[in-house]
C-alpha cells in the first residue's frame, strides 16, 4: 500500500517536471514526437533507478567518512561514469536496444532529474509522502529509495509522452508566428501543469 501511494504521489501529485521543474530541458527538447519521447522515457527510467541505487550506497560511505560536502562532486562523477558504462555494455550485449536508446544516453548525464532524484532521496525524509506531520521522520531505506526513483521516473515518462502527443497535434494547427516553437510549447506545458494541479490533495 505504501508503495502504491508513493507511485500515485510521484506520478500525479508531485510530478517531477510539472510541479518540481526538474528535467525541463529534455522535456522541451525531445518531445516533438511520441516515439522519441518513449525512447527517452525508457532510458531515463533505467538510468535514474540505477543511479539512485549506486548514489544511495555512496552516500552511506560519505557519511561514514564525514565528507558529506563532497556529495555533489562524487554524485555527478558516478552518474557520468555510470551512463558511459551503460552505453558501452548496451552496445556489446544488446545492439538492438542500443539502437533504440543509444542516442539518448549521453543526453541523460545533464538531465537534472538523475542528480535531482539522487540528492532528494538522500536528503528528504520519505514519510512526507504518506504521513504528514510525523515526528522525527527517518531517511528512506534502500528499497523505498529505489521505488521512489522508479516512480518519479515513470511520472516523468507520463508527462513527457502526454506532452509529445499534444505537440504532434500542435504541429498541424495554426500558431501565430511569434509563438512558434518554444513559447507555444511552454504554454502547452503550463496548461498541462494546470491539469495536473487538479490531483493535488489526492494523497
Amino acid at each position: 500500500m505504501e508503495y502504491v501511494i508513493m507511485f500515485i504521489s510521484a506520478i500525479f501529485v508531485n510530478n517531477i517536471v510539472l510541479s518540481q521543474f526538474l528535467g525541463v530541458c529534455p522535456f522541451l527538447g525531445v518531445s516533438k514526437r511520441v516515439d522519441t519521447a518513449l525512447g527517452m522515457s525508457a532510458a531515463v527510467t533505467f538510468v535514474v533507478a540505477l543511479a539512485t541505487l549506486v548514489t544511495y550506497l555512496l552516500q552511506g560511505l560519505l557519511v561514514k567518512l564525514h565528507i558529506e560536502f563532497m556529495q555533489t562532486v562524487s554524485f555527478i562523477l558516478v552518474i557520468a561514469g555510470l551512463v558511459q558504462m551503460v552505453e558501452i555494455i548496451l552496445k556489446k550485449i544488446s545492439p538492438s536496444l542500443y539502437q533504440a536508446l543509444g542516442i539518448f544516453l549521453p543526453l541523460i548525464t545533464t538531465n537534472c532529474i538523475v542528480l535531482g532524484v539522487a540528492i532528494q532521496v538522500v536528503t528528504n525524509e520519505y514519510s512526507f509522502i504518506n504521513n504528514v506531520g510525523a515526528a522525527n521522520p527517518n531517511m528512506m531505506n534502500l528499497p523505498q529509495a529505489v521505488v521512489f526513483a522508479v516512480a518519479t521516473a515513470i511520472g516523468y515518462s507520463v508527462a513527457l509522452i502526454l506532452f509529445a502527443g499534444i505537440r504532434e497535434q500542435l504541429e498541424l494547427s495554426n500558431v501565430p508566428k511569434v509563438f512558434k516553437g518554444v513559447p507555444i510549447a511552454l504554454i502547452t506545458a503550463g496548461i498541462l501543469a494546470l491539469a495536473f494541479m487538479g490531483f493535488s490533495g489526492l494523497v
Binding site: 528528504n124 512526507f128 521522520p137
Partner: peptide, 10 residues
C-alpha cells in the same frame, strides 16, 4: 524544537 514533515518535505 520539533522536527516534522510537511507538504514539501522535512
Amino acid at each position: 524544537k520539533i522536527k516534522t514533515s510537511s507538504f514539501g518535505g522535512p
